[in-house]
Design a protein around this nucleic acid. Structure first.
Lengths: 138, 138
DNA sequence: TTGATTTGTAATAAATACAGTTACATATTA
DNA sequence: TAATATGTAACTGTATTTATTACAAATCAA
C-alpha cells in the first residue's frame, strides 16, 4: 500500500467527529491535512459510498459523520479508501514448466487471504472514538 | 506495499526448498519466476542478509537454503524483502494549527504498530514447509 | 431569480517508485 | 586460464499517486 488515503481518511473523520453535526468543507479539511481540496473531495466520495459520512452541497455545505464514532471501525475506513491487496503479486505469469511456478500463485492467494483477515480483525477492534480519545489526550 | 518482492521471495525459496542442497542459479530462478536474473540477485542479497539462504559464486554456484524449511517463517521472509510500512502517511506535514493535525501522526503510528504486529503474528504462523506442502498437493 | 458557495468530476501535470535491462567488476572452480 | 556465477552501478520505461486547474451541477439565502 503506497497510498496515504487511509491516513487522510482517519484524519478527516477525526475532525468530523469533533465537529459533530456541523459541516466541514473540503477546503477547511484540506487545510488541516495540508493537501488540495480535490484530494479531500475524492476521499469524501468513497467515505460516503461506504456510508460513513454524508455530504451537502451549497453554502454551509460540506461533510458530516453519518454514524456515531463508536460505530465506525478503522476496518470500515480502510476498506472504503484503500485497495484490499496487502502485497504485490507476480507481474508476469510464472513459468508453467516449473511445478512451483504452476501453483505458487494460488498458494500466495491463500497467504494473502490469511494476512488480510488478520489485519482486518485488528483494524476492526479500533474505533473512530478510540482515535478521537487518543488525539485528545496525547 | 505495491511491490512483488515478497511474492518473488516466497516463490524462490519454495524452489530452493525442493532443490535441497543443490545450488540454483539466478538465471534458472529468473526463468521460473519469469523476470530478469538481476531482479532475483537483488532479492537473494536481502534473503542472504536475513540468514535465510547462502549464495556461492562461480561454476555450480547459486543459492541454497541456509535453514530447514520448517525453520523459515513467512514473517522472516517478509521482513527481509519488504518495507515494514503497511500504509502510507501524510506526505506533507499536517497543520499544526488544527488540534487534530498536531497529534494525528503519532496516533497513526500507534495504529500502524498494532496492524504490523497483527500481520507479523499471522505470517509467523506460516512456514516455508507449509508453502512447499501446499504447492505439492494443490 | 440571482449570486455566492460547495460538491462532483474530468483532464492533466509532476513526482516517485519499481521492475526490468545492460554492463561490468569480482569471485570461484576446474 | 577460461568459464561461470554473483554483486552492483547506472539507466530506462512504465505505472501509480498526489496535486492542480477548470468547470458543471446543486443548494441556499437575500
Amino acid at each position: 500500500m503506497a497510498t496515504c488515503r487511509f491516513a487522510f481518511a482517519v484524519h478527516v473523520l477525526t475532525v468530523l467527529a469533533q465537529h459533530k453535526t456541523r459541516c466541514s468543507s473540503s477546503a477547511s479539511l484540506a487545510r488541516t491535512v495540508n493537501t488540495n481540496p480535490v484530494v479531500i473531495r475524492r476521499l469524501l466520495v468513497d467515505l460516503q459510498n461506504a456510508g460513513l459520512i454524508r455530504t451537502l452541497r451549497g453554502p454551509q455545505g460540506g461533510a458530516v459523520l453519518a454514524k456515531r464514532p463508536e460505530k465506525i471501525s478503522l476496518r470500515q475506513v480502510h476498506s472504503a479508501v484503500e485497495s484490499p491487496e496487502l502485497f504485490g503479486r507476480h507481474p508476469n505469469p510464472p513459468s508453467k514448466e516449473c511445478p512451483v511456478g504452476q501453483k505458487i500463485e494460488s498458494v500466495l492467494g491463500y497467504v494473502e487471504s490469511r494476512a488480510a483477515r488478520s489485519l482486518s480483525r485488528e483494524l476492526q477492534a479500533i474505533s473512530l472514538a478510540d482515535i478521537v480519545r487518543r488525539v485528545q489526550r496525547t
